[in-house]
């Protein structure tokens, strides 16, 4: 993995301005006042990976959220002796809202399956910036809650009949 060179091909807009445009597409940041979004965009960095690079690993105390600018990555879960692919992430996906708000260990691994460029913000940077905009905390929580709620709603709707066991642990939105 490697952060991008500072070179800008078009010569027109800076990496920061591109970051700003990207953040305004992500639900987590889109509702914020511009002055806060600017600071977040400024604090973001770029990382690029080659196919096969591990972006984060199960068990890591990784503290980053990432937005995939280009490329694809595979999410997997390792049990004692088997690895299960959960799903694929691609351009435009944003991962890690929870990691920004609290210290948790990764329960999954993410591996690049093609050249991947992503936008990254670390919890440290996010938290430090958030301290300067304390009014925004409820907004972030609200977005997170709705994300979890939508996730479970979708889960309940799309679950197939044969997954009786899944239902036993349903109710993540009730935590």
């Amino acid at each position: 993995m490697n952060s991008n060179s500072g070179k800008n091909e078009s010569g027109a807009s800076s990496e920061y301005q591109e970051n700003l445009n990207i953040l305004r597409q992500i639900d987590f940041f889109s509702g914020l006042p511009l002055e806060a979004t600017k600071v977040f965009a400024y604090l973001c960095s770029r990382e690029s990976c080659k196919p096969g690079d591990v972006i984060f690993e199960q068990g890591d105390e990784d503290d980053r959220a990432l937005f995939i600018i280009s490329g694809q990555a595979r999410l997997s879960q390792q049990t004692d002796n088997a690895e299960t692919t959960i799903r694929h992430y691609r351009e435009g996906d944003f991962i890690g809202r929870m990691t920004l708000l609290g210290q948790i260990r990764r329960l999954f691994s993410l591996t690049a399956t093609s050249e991947v460029v992503c936008l990254v913000i670390t919890r440290e940077k996010f938290t430090k910036a958030l301290e300067k905009f304390p009014d925004l905390v409820p907004k972030f929580i609200d977005v997170l809650v709705h994300n979890i709620y939508r996730w479970e709603k979708r889960f309940l709707k799309t679950r197939t009949g044969d997954c009786k066991d899944c239902m036993k642990i349903a109710g993540v939105s009730l935590v």
Binding site: S5, G6, K7, S13, Y16, N19, Y42
Partner: peptide
């Protein structure tokens, strides 16, 4: 100005 660190402005070609 160090383009690799200071990302608010791009270095004009």
């Amino acid at each position: 100005f160090t383009p690799g660190i200071h990302k608010m402005v791009a270095l004009p070609e």
